[in-house]
Amino acid sequence: MKLRGRTYVPDPQPLPPGGGRSVSPAELNERRRRLEREFAELQFDLGGLAYEMAIRDHFRVDLLVRHAARLQALDAELGAVERLARMDEGGAAGTCPNCDALYPRGAAFCSQCAHPLMR
């Protein structure tokens, strides 16, 4: 673990086995369906949490923010998967070997971590 200034920067994690492998259109669609389902559940949970706090007239903003942050991160991942799914060539070319983010065909660098994708 390293601290630069006051910002925590985690140590790089080793690549998972098979990191950087190609992703088929079917795998991309399955990932999108899973993320959509998870997003809907988290959104429902956040609404329920806010409702329960409202009827008790006791709000825990830290708890709401934590749940909203999880929802926001999932929404960003879902947006990236949906962009890749809409591509004319029918899906992603693969996953980044550094951060496991999906990337489109012809990409020279990862859009998440700027890792070079072409040798």
Rank of each mutant, 00 (worst) to 15 (best):
M1H: 08
L3N: 04
L3V: 10
R4T: 15
R4P: 00
T7D: 15
T7I: 13
V9K: 06
P12V: 03
Q13L: 10
P14M: 04
P16C: 10
P16M: 13
G19T: 07
G19H: 01
G20L: 03
S22M: 02
S22H: 07
S22P: 05
P25M: 06
E27R: 04
R33D: 15
L35D: 11
L35R: 08
E36S: 09
R37F: 11
A40M: 08
A40T: 09
G48D: 14
L49C: 02
Y51G: 02
Y51N: 05
E52A: 03
D57V: 03
D57G: 03
R60S: 08
R60K: 06
V61Y: 05
D62P: 03
L64M: 07
V65E: 15
H67C: 12
A69S: 14
L71V: 08
Q72C: 12
D75K: 08
D75Y: 11
A76W: 09
A76R: 14
E77S: 07
L78A: 08
A80M: 11
V81F: 01
V81K: 01
V81H: 00
R83K: 15
A85Y: 07
E89H: 13
G91D: 11
G91Y: 04
G91Q: 06
T95V: 06
C96F: 01
P97K: 04
C99M: 04
C99P: 01
D100Q: 03
A101N: 07
Y103K: 00
Y103H: 00
R105P: 12
R105Q: 14
G106R: 02
G106K: 02
A107I: 02
S111M: 09
S111L: 08
C113Q: 04
H115I: 06
P116M: 00
M118L: 09
